[in-house]
């Protein structure tokens, strides 16, 4: 059974709109749903960068990430009519993109969700304060350089907030595999952060 982060289809009245919902986003979504070319271009300019970053996080390769970002934007154009102002437009678009990436991962199945790496020496995990000293682009690089399977599991668990059970359903793997891969992803990221901190003081 596939599980997706589907945008909410519940229609809520304007009085229930969250404060975070940008009225401009609503208008932009409405115009895009009508097929307004200028609105679609504006949507692309505003949000393509964040969607591109999401794709890089998941697939690692920038060329592939760009293709998938284009595909997700086309899917967003097609389904923009389903957007409801229960969340921000950006979060809705991010969810659509993540769902597309999951489809891609399942379809390609080039990721071997079996850990066959050798055991590294156990090192202490960084603290929250140490993590705050690491720049965003380095965090992005560390995640994108993870091996494929660990990268996907880490993104789904830590960034998107899925449980191991949800991940096992989405990717068709065992929960044990998901937790094992997450553990190994955390180990490798810890090592990378330690290495960065050691190099940069």
């Amino acid at each position: 059974m596939r599980k997706y982060l589907r945008p909410s289809s519940v229609i809520s009245s304007e009085s229930n709109l969250k404060e975070s919902v940008n009225i401009e986003d609503l208008e932009l979504a409405r115009l895009c749903a009508r097929g307004d070319e200028n609105a679609r271009k504006e949507m692309y300019i505003r949000y393509a960068g964040s969607l591109y970053a999401i794709c890089i996080r998941y697939v690692g390769d920038r060329e592939l990430a760009r293709d998938l970002m284009h595909d997700s934007m086309i899917r967003i154009y097609d389904t923009i009519g389903k957007y409801r102002p229960t969340g921000t437009l950006k979060s809705w678009m991010s969810k659509v993109t993540v769902n597309l990436l999951i489809d891609h991962i399942r379809r390609e199945r080039k990721y071997q969700f079996v850990s066959m790496e050798r055991e590294y020496e156990k090192i202490p995990e960084p603290s929250v304060e140490e993590m705050r000293t690491v720049p965003k682009d380095q965090i992005m690089r560390m995640v994108s350089e993870l091996p494929e399977a660990k990268r996907v599991i880490f993104n789904l668990f830590c960034v998107e907030g899925y449980s191991h059970k949800d991940i096992s359903v989405m990717l068709g793997i065992k929960e044990k595999t998901s937790s094992s891969l997450l553990f190994k992803a955390r180990e490798q990221l810890s090592r990378n952060v330690r290495d960065y901190l050691r190099e940069n003081g």
Binding site: Y52, I56, R62, H70, R132, K136, I139, M140
Partner: peptide, 27 residues
């Protein structure tokens, strides 16, 4: 209690990557 991996989530959710040149035309 906040974990160090939560920082990844905080930073990565709002991050934007620079688009390659000519990306809009390609799209």
């Amino acid at each position: 209690m906040e974990e160090w991996t939560d920082i990844f989530a905080e930073e990565l959710k709002d991050i934007e990557a620079p688009l390659p040149d000519g990306d809009l035309d390609m799209f």
